[in-house]
Design a protein around this nucleic acid. Structure first.
Lengths: 145, 145
DNA sequence: TATTGTTATACTCTATAACTATA
DNA sequence: TATAGTTATAGAGTATAACAATA
């Protein structure tokens, strides 16, 4: 009865550490983005807008509600970074980066990558290993997981 | 100028995946804890109280403000899971598990471990590898990081 | 003066529900 | 009838500021 308990306890400890690292990653992101004067949720959205994107699809990518995206779009539009463009289906609005949005997006992407713990603390090999493990952890459950 | 950009972009992607996995881990924790009828923040605190702990130290372990700990202590006390005991320094209060708190704590710890993605998706070897990588990512920066 | 716990209040990120205009 | 975006409101999880007791 001891060995199974040990695996369980260790798994819990690792889960906690994953959360700690993620918090670190978020803090790094916030720090990397701060010089641009862009609130974090807006920066997250900006990075996803490499290509014109229907608002409901952005909601899906951010794993949030459509109503939250309305506010994000407002914020980005106020700053002149995106514009709402009509979609083929007239219910749909596309969020499309302005030239200012494009250039800010690439600056923010670079800063976010360079500022990340993953960049600063791991070697290329370690990044490959981590990549593989994370893929296991986020992959869709096969039938009956 | 291309290779460095690739490493940067990849690091950012990995950081995003860490966050996704952590969110998964949190959702797993919430699901594991839900049957106990204990709000998540209270469950997190409970798990840290293996031994009687000054409130300001719990705040440190949870990486939150002291004022938040007051509410957590209230919640745990209302449920009969901890009691506030006087410390040596009379400003300090120790949070100490009651017998009910002890037994619930070990049940919750088991459920949280068993419910975690890390437990369900990874082999023992993979857990060891992950452990090593996470340690690199959370370790204190050596002088001049 | 500095620190512990407390209280009241405010803030950030996000969800829910109800609305409108299309489909 | 169902879906896209909007609006107003509400909630969870936290921080901040000011305070009393103690060091």
């Amino acid at each position: 009865m001891k060995p199974p308990e040990d695996r369980v306890a260790r798994s819990h400890r690792l889960a906690l550490e994953m959360v700690r690292v993620a918090e670190r990653a978020k803090a790094d992101f916030a720090a990397a983005v701060e010089p641009f004067g862009l609130p974090v949720p807006l920066a997250r959205a900006l990075l996803l807008l490499e290509t014109p994107t229907p608002m409901h699809l952005l909601a899906e990518q951010l794993a949030c509600d459509r109503s939250w995206v309305t506010g994000l779009a407002d914020g980005l539009e106020e700053r002149g970074l995106v514009k709402r463009a009509p979609g083929a289906d007239r219910r749909v609005k596309l969020l499309e980066l302005t030239p200012a949005g494009e250039s800010l997006r690439s600056e923010v992407a670079r800063a976010a990558g360079e500022g990340s713990v993953v960049m600063r603390r791991l070697s290329d090999d370690e990044r490959s290993t981590l990549d593989r493990l994370l893929a296991r952890l986020v992959e869709e459950p096969a039938s009956g997981d």
